[in-house]
């Protein structure tokens, strides 16, 4: 069953041990849009991405990906769904024992019966899309941070996925490389009609690529809206994030002293 939404997140709670990381999250991600999940450090955005990818089981709630509830489905169905998605991890997560081209070819070799020639051609097409064609025979350790991210992106799109996830595309990159990646993400959406989910906290990137933005704060969904709606928001947590206002530590003086001096448990 396919709906107008590529992903629907309903009443999601996530805990690590006794610590609640995400609470009552409800987000719809529409087909063909770029949804940016944004928030400060520790806001739970990476945990949310891991839940959407099925790498972390939530404590409660549902995540419907392309109509299937991935929280309550069999491993076989989950793997079937994963063949329709692409993921570019923050550090690239390229296999260090393989060349760039071998990394990109891996999903094709595992999931298709294409002949060697076709695999080579498809690899070069994707490498060309991310401007990495001259580096196909390099090992991941020989690549810069931006090149690793682009190679990871090529691997993520090699199977022409319906859904593309990108974790922190701009983190640790210089402004020019970061802008190039932003352009690439928008180009992918337009040329391949993908639904793209980007997790980031880089403000410039967010407003350059987002169709809609979901803002998380301290494990809760603060607001979902278009970039204009987010910019005009009056919510303190949103304006604080956009204006880079340092968080105030409104802790009582006595409580603060007790925290500093109490015995370690």
């Amino acid at each position: 069953m396919e709906t107008a939404n590529a992903i629907e997140i309903r009443d999601l709670d996530v805990d690590y041990g006794s610590r609640r990381i995400l609470s009552d999250i409800n987000i719809d991600i529409r087909q063909g849009e770029i949804m940016v999940i944004m928030g400060g450090s520790g806001s739970g955005k990476s945990t949310l991405l891991r839940c959407i990818l099925g790498l972390k089981k939530p404590s409660a709630g549902h995540i419907y990906m392309l109509g299937t509830d991935i929280c309550h489905t069999s491993n076989k169905k989950l793997y079937g769904l994963r063949e329709q998605i692409g993921v570019a991890f923050q550090g690239g997560a390229l296999f260090t024992s393989m060349t760039v081209a071998e990394n990109i070819q891996l999903p094709l070799r595992e999931h298709t019966n294409l002949d060697e020639n076709t695999i080579q051609i498809m690899t070069r097409i994707k490498l060309d899309m991310v401007n990495m064609l001259p580096y196909e025979n390099l090992m991941p350790s020989e690549l810069s941070g931006g090149m690793k991210k682009r190679a990871a992106l090529a691997r993520a799109i090699i199977m022409d996925p319906k859904l593309l996830f990108f974790d922190e595309p701009s983190a640790g990159l210089d402004p020019i490389t970061s802008a190039e990646l932003d352009e690439l993400i928008v180009m992918l959406k337009e040329s391949m009609k993908m639904t793209i989910v980007v997790v980031t906290h880089e403000l410039e990137s967010v407003f350059a690529i987002a169709d809609r933005i979901a803002i998380l704060g301290e494990g809760q969904l603060v607001q979902v809206g278009t970039p204009e709606e987010i910019k005009s928001s009056t919510d303190e947590r949103v304006t604080g994030l956009l204006n880079r206002t340092p968080r105030k530590n409104n802790v009582d003086k006595d409580v603060h002293i007790e925290r500093l001096t109490r015995d370690k448990e």
Binding site: R50, L53, G54, L55, Y79, G80, R82, E83, I85, G86, V87, F89, Q90, G91, A93, L94, F95, T96, L106, P107, E110, H111, R155, F165
Partner: peptide
């Protein structure tokens, strides 16, 4: 190292069972 650098997660996301692979 593959686990801490998300390479195992990447395999999972590519629908390649990492235990078998």
């Amino acid at each position: 190292i593959m686990r801490i650098t998300e390479q195992v997660d990447a395999l999972e996301c590519m629908a390649i069972p990492p235990d078998k692979y």
